[in-house]
């Protein structure tokens, strides 16, 4: 719930109830402003519901804004530490993941130079490598993320698929129906902050006349 400058109250989500179990891959659909990102943020714990409750069992990680917290004056290595700390990792976890992150990002010696010297693609590779170097039980995503040049994108795609396979539960907000069809077994549709549908993905796609992936 948010109060606008005029004092009126905006209710971003209302009457949304659902339950997910281990193995579920939920696709969140709805038009822009329907409440998908808000729901993800409620599930992650950034927003606390003003009414009702959220019961989440398991280690939850989110891939929302992967550039969050990056500082352009600090080196790539320092940014990995800072981002790790913000993610709630301790120093031993950061040190443990450091070399793998650097290796995956393909930054080589650039890792010790300030982020501001990186090209856009390099910065995106670093952000992607840090953000996806986690091992969540519940993974929340606002759009499927990818980064860098075509070669790195193929690598990123594999990493995302591997991450999705390992996670117990995935909640993915996306407008890409093909991706949702390929990834999700359930669909939750939001309309103006209200739950319009929560059903098996196959049923939802059939009801909307969207053919299966050939």
């Amino acid at each position: 719930m948010s109060r606008s400058k005029t004092g009126s109250v905006v209710q971003a989500l209302n009457d949304v109830s659902f339950k997910l179990e281990s193995g579920d891959r939920l696709g969140l659909v709805g038009t822009n402003g329907a409440g998908k990102t808000t729901l993800l943020k409620v599930l992650y714990g950034i927003y606390e519901p003003t009414h009702g409750e959220v019961d989440v069992v398991g280690r939850t990680d989110a891939l929302f804004n992967i550039n969050l917290g990056f500082r352009k004056e600090a080196s790539g290595r320092r940014n990995i530490v800072l981002r790790g700390l913000i993610n709630g990792w301790d120093m031993s976890q950061i040190n443990e993941r450091m070399e793998k992150i650097i290796e995956f990002s393909e930054l080589g010696d650039f890792i010790d130079l300030p982020l501001k010297t990186y090209s856009q693609g390099m910065a995106a590779r670093l952000a992607f490598s840090v953000a996806t170097s986690l091992d969540p039980e519940i993974l929340l995503m606002d759009e499927w993320i990818g980064a860098g040049d075509p070669e790195f994108q193929a690598k990123a795609k594999n990493r995302m698929e591997h991450l999705a396979e390992r996670a117990g539960i995935i909640v993915l907000a996306s407008h890409n129906h093909l991706l949702l069809q390929r990834t999700c077994n359930k669909i939750l549709e939001l309309e103006s902050g209200k739950l319009k549908a929560f059903q098996e993905a196959e049923e939802w796609f059939d009801a909307h006349g969207i053919a299966g992936e050939s």
Binding site: K41, Y44, G45, I46, F64, N65, L68, G69, I86
Partner: peptide
């Protein structure tokens, strides 16, 4: 703002 609205710190 960006950290408050993007993380659960």
């Amino acid at each position: 703002e960006s950290l408050i609205t993007g993380t659960k710190l």
